[in-house]
Design a protein around this nucleic acid. Structure first.
Lengths: 131, 131
DNA sequence: GTTATTGCAAACAATTTGCACCCAC
DNA sequence: GTGGGTGCAAATTGTTTGCAATAAC
C-alpha cells in the first residue's frame, strides 16, 4: 500500500494539480480531455487508474451524479454540496458543519479518518415554487 | 412534480417496504432479484425508474460503491458509513453528527433540506497495521 | 534487469430508453 | 379513451481490464 505522505507518481501529481487548478469538481472524462494535447496528456485508462489511487491515498474525494458519473475534487478543498432532488442542480457550500464537531463514536476508535463527503439533498428555490 | 406527502404508486411503495425490511442498503439489482417471483415482482427497468422517483421525492437516499453501483436506503434510517479507502470495507455508523448541529449557511436559506448523505473515508484497523 | 506504469482497444456492468402493451380512472 | 406505469430487449455510457510496449530505479 502506498504510504500517505508519498508524492505519488508524476501522472498522479499532474492530475492532482489539474484538480487544484479547477474551480469545480471534474469527471474522469473532463480530466482526460483537459490534459489531452498537453505534454502530460494521458490515456483515459491512466486517468481512471490514477484517480483511484489518489482516492485510496486519501488525496482526492469523489461524489456521484445521478447519471453515475463520478466527480472528483482534492480533499483539502473543504467544501460540500447542496443538490436539488428535483432538477439536479448543485450549489457549493463553503462551510463544513462536521469540522465544528468532534465525531465521537465507538466505531471510529480503530479507524483513522482521512476525509469525508457530505451532501445535502432537498428542493431548490425554483423547484419549491414550481411544485 | 410529485408532492412530498404522496404515497406514490404501488410499485414505489413496494420498493420502499423492501428497503425498510432489509437490514442493509440494497442495489437496484438486488431489489430486482429479491422481488422476482413474488406477486409484486417487477422488471429491472421499473425498479430503476421507481428508485429514481423515490429519490426525487426524498424518500430514498443512495451512495455509490467504488465499483459504481448505487446502494439505496430509506432516508428515515438515520445511519451513515465509515469506508476504508484501501480495502473498501464499510461499517455502519449509527450516530449522525449533523443532527446535533444546526446547519447555518446563507446557501441553505432558500433551500428546503430533506436529507443528507455523509460518508467517512480513512483506514480501517487492519489496513493501518498492514501498511 | 526487475518492477511498476502506460496506451490502446476490447470488455464489462449498471443503468437508461424505445416502444408496444396494459391498467386505472 | 386518455395518461401514466410497465416489461422486454436493445442501446448507452462511464469505467475497467488484458496485454504488449515503455519508463523508472
Amino acid at each position: 500500500m502506498e504510504q500517505p505522505g508519498s508524492q505519488g507518481t508524476q501522472r498522479q501529481q499532474l492530475l492532482l494539480e489539474e484538480l487544484q487548478k479547477s474551480q469545480s469538481e471534474m469527471t474522469g472524462q473532463q480530466l482526460h480531455r483537459c490534459l489531452e494535447g498537453q505534454p502530460g496528456g494521458m490515456g483515459l485508462a491512466t486517468v481512471y487508474r490514477n484517480l483511484r489511487k489518489l482516492h485510496q491515498q486519501g488525496k482526492v474525494r469523489c461524489r456521484h451524479l445521478p447519471t453515475g458519473e463520478a466527480l472528483y475534487a482534492p480533499v483539502d478543498r473543504d467544501e460540500h454540496h447542496l443538490t436539488c432532488v428535483n432538477c439536479g442542480t448543485t450549489q457549493t457550500l463553503q462551510l463544513c458543519p462536521i469540522h465544528e464537531l468532534k465525531v465521537k463514536a465507538p466505531e471510529t476508535d480503530n479507524f483513522k479518518l482521512i476525509f469525508h463527503t457530505l451532501e445535502f439533498f432537498g428542493l431548490c428555490n425554483r423547484c419549491q415554487t414550481k411544485g
